[in-house]
């Protein structure tokens, strides 16, 4: 019961970083509980993945050789089988798009408490999870009943596991029921006129701009600075800018010299795409906007007042 089962993640032949981060989180919890760390490798090039995941602190790797790509039906069945076979009380999964496609079902199937998007936790006879609320404006601690749980962990909060472990690797057969959801392929989106990932300077606009007509204002700023225009998701969802301009988890990851966030709150999925920028500048009316936590320079002010002045400075 004190053991922890980490579920790794891969896509199109590559393990994803979230896997190594989840191992670190899982090891932390297993240490606190005095248990072993198990890692599940489900589908894909399982032998190669198992070797790569055999990092320091991993006690056992369970390989389920079913299918090439993610299939929640296989994941759910495999995790259920591993919970039966091992002594694992807690499942730790990445809080990724695929993680959220199976972890809630696993919790439900096993009647286990579920806490998603953890940014930290403590275990002291019981599990207390730290997570954010209200668009990252506050943090909360959440006490979880019982000794068994399902936990998904936010990307970038735990360091990737390193070193080489001496885990036993074993293969597990899982009985699969026929699935009513079938993956038929993948599609790359993006392309288009510019690659914002190439830009040295990005002026990035968010929902604070309010209306499509107002985009002109940030376009002028981008022109004056010789910068490229990018955006947060709502601007793209509204169809005001094409998808290839979107910065973030489901858009592009950018690392320009200078990133100017105009009217962007700094949601975690946005920050995932730009936190590697050298210098981050934020203009936002809300002093509590989380974007200021990662900014190097901040102006707490109205973009409709500040941006025109800034354009004038460079006119």
């Amino acid at each position: 019961m004190s053991d922890v089962l980490v579920v790794s993640e891969h896509r199109r032949g590559e393990l994803r970083d979230a896997s190594y981060e989840a191992i670190t989180a899982g090891r932390e919890l297993a240490d606190a509980r005095g248990g072993d760390l198990h890692v599940a490798v489900i589908g894909g090039d399982v032998d190669r993945f198992a070797e790569d995941l055999n990092r320091e602190g991993v006690d056992a790797i369970h390989v389920v050789d079913d299918g090439e790509e993610f299939d929640h039906n296989v994941y759910q069945a495999a995790i259920a089988a591993l919970l039966d076979r091992t002594d694992a009380g807690t499942v730790v999964a990445p809080n990724s798009v695929n993680g959220l496609d199976y972890a809630p079902a696993v919790a439900e199937d096993r009647s286990l408490p579920l806490v998603t998007d953890a940014i930290g936790f403590e275990y002291d006879g019981g599990l207390t999870v730290t997570r954010e609320m209200y668009g990252s404006k506050v943090e909360t601690t959440v006490d979880v009943d019982g000794d068994r749980h399902v936990l998904t962990v936010r990307g970038g909060e735990w360091a990737p596991a390193e070193g080489v472990g001496d885990a036993a690797i074993e293969s597990v057969d899982v009985d699969l029921l026929e699935s009513g959801a079938r993956v038929t392929g993948f599609e790359e989106v993006g392309g288009g006129d510019v690659d914002i990932a190439d830009a040295d300077v990005l002026v990035s606009v968010g929902r604070g701009i309010e209306e499509e007509e107002n985009l002109e204002l940030v376009e002028e700023l981008a022109d004056a600075l010789g910068a490229t225009l990018s955006a947060s998701r709502p601007i793209v969802d509204n169809g005001w800018l094409p998808k290839n301009r979107q910065v973030g988890q489901s858009g592009k990851v950018v690392t320009p010299d200078v990133y100017i966030a105009v009217g962007i709150s700094g949601a975690v999925q946005h920050v995932a795409g730009m936190k590697g920028s050298d210098t981050i500048i934020a203009i936002n009316t809300d002093p509590n906007a989380p974007i200021f936590d990662i900014a190097d320079y901040g102006i707490v002010g109205d973009l409709f007042e500040v941006v025109p002045e800034l354009v004038d400075e460079f006119a």
Partner: peptide, 18 residues
């Protein structure tokens, strides 16, 4: 199965020049 036991404003790790 969950109870929120505390809520607080996160300590800013930023040394942003405001």
């Amino acid at each position: 199965a969950l109870a929120i036991t505390s809520m607080y404003e996160p300590e800013s790790e930023s040394d942003a020049e405001i």
